[in-house]
Simulated assay, not measured.
Amino acid sequence: MISEGMLDTLFANQFRRESSCLVVSPGRTELCGNHTDHNRGKVLAAAIDLAKTAAVAPRDDMRVEIITEGLPERVDLIIDDDKPREEEKGTSSALVRGVIAALRRKGFKAAGFSAFVRSGVALGSGLSSSASFEVLIAKIISRLFNNDTIDPLTMALAGQEAENRFFGKPCGLMDQIACSYGGIVSVDLEYPEKPIIESVDFSFYDHGYTLAVIHTGGSHADLTGDYAAVPQEMEAVARFFGKTACRQLSRNQLFEELSSLRKAVGDRAILRALHFFNENARVTEATEALKKGNMQEYLSIIRASAKSSRDLLQNIYSPSKPEEQNISMALALAEELLGNDGACRVHGGGFAGTIQAYVPNERFSFFRERMEHYQGKGSVTPILISSTGEC
């Protein structure tokens, strides 16, 4: 964790007054359940030891000012209403306004504050920088104005609403839940307002494997359409049957109406829905494998998840840029190095960004050296599970 004295000094240098406390929000890693949360599916995720840490202090007005070290964008807004603003879409200001609006609607108090943020969760890292930021704002509001009484689920829901309605990016609830709850969590989102959340006590390192993410290069810029198409196409399949989400369907229904369905929604939508059903079942299997302490069974499930994301979900590269296949290349390299011992998969939303790998502890140094030879120095980041929503 960043020392309190260091952040206090940085805060004082920027705002010419003292901070009152530190607030921490971890990043997250998706373990299983690739693109299932937005269709009321199941997910397995975890908070990690890379976090956003903020020195904060309340203001005596409704102004919010946030400086994030290393980023040119400075948040500076007046939280005088709770409506989305078109000119803020796609910005951090939209996330701040959205989180605060959602919390105020739930009856929580909010006012202005100043914050200096240092982040170990890099933008575009696949470790959910946006959800970590959203939960950070919710934690600041809880700490400064509500005596730490805002529960993790309320924080997560506020973050999701901010991203969907205010920022303008469709997303599920997995990232926010993982960041707000901490540890490994198995989440059933069949009823999103009342998800079933189960904590799972497990250490990959203690079972012989280092969990790592590999930055593949490329940018998430201009990929919003690719991300949005995944839930939209799954939902198109659901609408064919008079439903709103794939969770309300069964696999058998797809095959019973396959001919008519292909004409109505197209092949890719059906393949993505099939991924949803299979991946949903894998989350349950992966959770049980961890609870039993069976690492090899878990790795087998992860390999199946990786294959499904590549073949059915098709989020390994953007179809608009087939010449740019950074994820595909990184997966191929990792598979060459791992052989039959370990696993790798696309991480998070996909199309660009990161992959995830489970590497035998004794081979991690070699794996890291070779991957960074191809992908660039610093591209491999080992991660540990954060046991709580703090770090």
Rank of each mutant, 00 (worst) to 15 (best):
G112I: 02
N280S: 13
Y205G: 03
E18S: 15
R85A: 09
D61A: 00
F133V: 01
D206H: 09
E297A: 13
R251A: 15
G217P: 06
V43F: 06
Q253C: 05
Y227G: 02
D61F: 01
R143E: 08
I137H: 03
P152E: 10
L77I: 15
C246Q: 05
S387F: 05
E362R: 03
D201C: 13
Y209E: 05
E69P: 09
G126A: 02
S250H: 01
I184Y: 04
I355E: 10
L258Y: 04
G90V: 04
P195L: 11
I270N: 02
R310W: 11
Q375V: 02
L144I: 09
L136Q: 04
S142T: 11
S309W: 06
R310M: 12
D60R: 11
E279I: 11
S260R: 14
E161D: 12
K263P: 02
D148L: 05
G27T: 06
T388L: 10
K83C: 12
F204M: 09
G33S: 00
E86W: 09
T9W: 09
F276V: 04
T36F: 08
L50R: 00
A54Q: 01
K377D: 13
M295W: 02
P192G: 02
A45C: 14
M1E: 09
A269C: 08
G339W: 09
H220S: 08
M329I: 15
V200F: 01
G172R: 13
H38R: 12
N315I: 03
S379W: 03
R40V: 01
V185Q: 12
E288Q: 15
D60T: 10
E87M: 08
L290T: 06
P26A: 07
L136F: 00
S328C: 06
R251T: 15
S132V: 04
K307V: 13
D341V: 02
G389W: 04
A162L: 04
G293E: 10
V187D: 12
L261H: 04
F133I: 06
Q314L: 10
H347R: 06
Y205A: 02
A269L: 01
V117K: 02
D188N: 15
T284R: 12
R272Q: 14
R105V: 03
E324H: 11
N340C: 11
I385R: 02
Y181R: 10
E193G: 06
D49I: 01
F367I: 03
I2H: 08
F166I: 03
I196H: 14
E336V: 14
G217W: 00
N340H: 14
E285R: 09
A352Y: 03
R310G: 13
P192V: 00
M174F: 06
R74V: 13
S92D: 11
A357M: 03
E324G: 10
N326K: 15
A57S: 15
R165T: 12
D80Q: 10
D80G: 11
H373N: 15
T224Q: 14
L312H: 07
H207I: 07
R40H: 14
I301F: 07
E198T: 13
A357L: 04
S199E: 13
T36A: 06
A102W: 03
